[in-house]
Design a protein around this nucleic acid. Sequence first.
DNA 1: TTCTTATTGTCTCATTTTGTAACAATAATA
DNA 2: TATTATTGTTACAAAATGAGACAATAAGAA
Lengths: 241, 241
Amino acid sequence: MHEPPHPENPNGKGFLPGLAMDAVIFGFHQNQLKILLLEYHNTGLFALPGGFIKDDENLNEAADRMVTERTGLKEVYLEQFYVFGNRDRHHKDTLRTILKGNGLTVTDDHWLLRRFVSVGYYALIDFTKAVPIPDAFSDSCDWYDLGSLPPLILDHRHIVAKALETLQTHLDRKLIGFNLLPETFTMGELQNLYETILGHKLHRTGFQRKMLSLGVLERIAKKWTGGAHKAPYLYRFSAGS
Amino acid sequence: MHEPPHPENPNGKGFLPGLAMDAVIFGFHQNQLKILLLEYHNTGLFALPGGFIKDDENLNEAADRMVTERTGLKEVYLEQFYVFGNRDRHHKDTLRTILKGNGLTVTDDHWLLRRFVSVGYYALIDFTKAVPIPDAFSDSCDWYDLGSLPPLILDHRHIVAKALETLQTHLDRKLIGFNLLPETFTMGELQNLYETILGHKLHRTGFQRKMLSLGVLERIAKKWTGGAHKAPYLYRFSAGS
DNA sequence: TTCTTATTGTCTCATTTTGTAACAATAATA
DNA sequence: TATTATTGTTACAAAATGAGACAATAAGAA
């Protein structure tokens, strides 16, 4: 679930005690909203990418580092959204299984078995640019459709739900959707993104009118896809004044 | 700033290490938005009410407890809004001054001098019902106008700003403003509350129309204040279906 | 080549929401 | 009894939104 630099680090030295971070990293591909999940060695357990905070690191810096380590991307759109601090969110057995899967047998007072409070972050990235990279505990780091996630450890399902909720409410207050698309996109692709995130259909002409009225879309050129119909324009997000 | 059960608790036993909470407790009185501040013994330093999380306590339970301890109120509207985790937010000198003001001289490795990450909560309470109670470190726990706060320790000014920002964005998405008013209120009082929080004037008739259209206001009776004008209705918030 | 088809961009109109003002009602005071 | 300040209601213009019509057009079919 998390990534200490040395998995056998015996007492968590160099990290803030009892505090972790979990990231819901969103991508968008083929009209599907996806997130990155890790699968731990020899366990069949899936989890959100996570990490710990170094002694000399700001919280948000640690989150940046974590997302960069899993995606290869820098300067990603990243936001803190909630802290998960219920007493029962941590299960010793789960953690012990994960450590055992990595060949580590630990005593009952190992720092990773103690109670953790976790800060949730969500990131929006360009699916086409990310290169998912597993951490030291994991076999894989891959994209999964939000609609068909495998069972997740601990309260990670709840964290995902809360992240999606936050994304939905943020979507129409800020201009963040563009972070999930490549450099250029059509109006239809943008609308698909919004519909997928919000979970319901939008009216085509109204959507186009609204987006264009924001004054942040730059029309570039026609896109010549192999469709039997009029070619749509391509747009680029222009950061405005 | 915080409240261990025994101030001389030498190593923070019984609490989650490195994690604190700070509460921005809002009240509304005489058309002013106010918050509760503590003044520490013999220091002239002001701070937000805060606390620590017990080993066996959920994060939100700890926040409830903290607000109840400072106000005497239970079942308060309370929401987590951000985690403050910059490395430089904690100043040893400030903490040492506070401890010294309480007659405690501590060594450099005292647990209260170590780095803390703090979870910010904001609460909305009925000013007329709260009975502010200082904690063990404080001379006073009192209301201060948001517009004229004394200098605050550490990053507490920043925490207040972020809380207000959150309150503003939440105000028109949820029906939370009522938590700041007494049982019954006039439409004018409700409008004053909104104007004060949002920081700008609203149109009277439009505001009334909008509030009534929500279907959560129950009209009770006329209010016979000593004003040379028509008497306004009193309303009560009715929680709806 | 010409016709068909699917999708796009634009335009129009009805509906709803919002901004703004006008006006009558009324409780205290002069 | 008249005045005054504020409230509740109604009215109307302006803006935003919902929903459809229609021409434009790129690719494939005939």
